[in-house]
Amino acid sequence: MQVQVSNLKHQLTLFLQSLEKYEKDVRDLYHELNQVESIWHDAHSEKFLEEIKTDRLDIEIMQEELKEIKEVYAYFIKRYEEIGDKISFDLSFKNRTIQKIDSVLLLFQKNIRLYQNLDFSFCPEERSYLEDEKQMLIENLNRLKNIKETFKAKIKTIEDIEQNIKMKLNKIKIQYIKENDLKDYLGEV
């Protein structure tokens, strides 16, 4: 997986600007179409204006659908932003990475036990040096344990984000729009 948050943010802003412009132009178009009522009137114009009302509702639904997609992207960006700006990881390596960390942790623990079993009675001078070394190993062990927990938490966050995005996307249904039959409004005058 890979995510580039800053670029997504910028792109989403551009998308929003287009959406706003689209909404304005839709308002202008339908306003003008509604004006036609006062300059053209016959049996066909009535059907035509009826159809315009239905189309307008369809377009409003479409605008809502686009906004729903925008909301999913906004959620996507907000959640991934908590993790970082550029995220790249092969999730299929998740278990292998944890196993690797565990094997290094075991090695640390084994070495710490070796230090603990050392008999210092015959070498009091080296004792302090060896104790420091053992302490260093314990610190590294704890650091690695933290890294493992952070790594697991990040992966869990990514899995949760993706699960939520999946649910949000599944809720979005793009409604079919019926195309008008122009013949209905183009009869003989």
Binding site: M1, Q2, V3, Q4, N7, L8, Q11, L12, L14, F15, S18, L19, K21, Y22, L66, I69, Y73, F76, E162, I165
Partner: peptide
């Protein structure tokens, strides 16, 4: 424009 931006959003993630 809307289509272009929706398409370009896809360039910046792969999940």
């Amino acid at each position: 424009e809307i289509e272009k931006h929706l398409k370009e959003l896809l360039y910046f993630f792969d999940t």
